[in-house]
Amino acid sequence: MTQQTLTILHNTPLASGVFRLELAGLDPAEPLAPGQFVNLQIPGFFLRRPISVCDAAGGVLTLIYKSVGEGTRVLSELPPGHSLDVLTGLGRGYDLEKAGRAPLLVGGGAGIPPLYFLAKELLRQGITPRVLLGFNTAAECFYEAEFTALGAETTLVTLEGSRGQKGFVTDHLPKDFTHFYACGPLPMLKALCRATEAPGQLSLEERMGCGFGACMGCSIQTARGPKRVCKDGPVFHREVLGW
């Protein structure tokens, strides 16, 4: 964990209610891992906002967030040049060693961004993942082209079929994958675990107090006892969750 002051380069709409925030000044000495998150201080709000890392390269941190409440609404209105106090390198990310030869990345809506960082890192290690992205509507879709540009075989799914395939991500699971990496809404994660026996890892979301393990605000019960989503997670192997 490092406390850094980063400067907004771009903060622009990406899809309906979804924004991409690029922050300059990231300390290159601190390595960030796919699945980790940062905690942003937004002017006028007491608690920080935890947001997972979408990309970190060349001193630029890229975050994609959904404007869901007052805090993220204010964040979405901050202009380039504005400085933000950011705690970086939080949480335990995805375990890449378990990927096998053909991993599958499954993302739903605002849960998709950390999978982009993961896909990049897997490809850097010579592993080509398949990517399955789920959205509610065509207006909410983002990053299909970015995943494709990385060289990952990418399938897009929307609930009513207004773009890509129709249905849930679980309706379009390939048969032969070695390991899954998922992030998305809780019902999607649980449905995914019901739909496949394959080993995998899931990134969870929870309201947090601190984001670094001090307050026990985000604890969940698991098959291996109480775990803090912020410190022991946010990524958990499915058997730890007992799902």
Binding site: F46, E206, R207, G209, C215, M216, C218
Partner: peptide, 20 residues
């Protein structure tokens, strides 16, 4: 003790509520 179910944290103007 595991404590209470989540959400355990809610933000307030100039502070927070906790129910750990």
């Amino acid at each position: 003790r595991f404590g209470n179910p989540t959400p355990r944290i809610a933000e307030c103007p100039a502070g927070l509520l906790n129910a750990v």
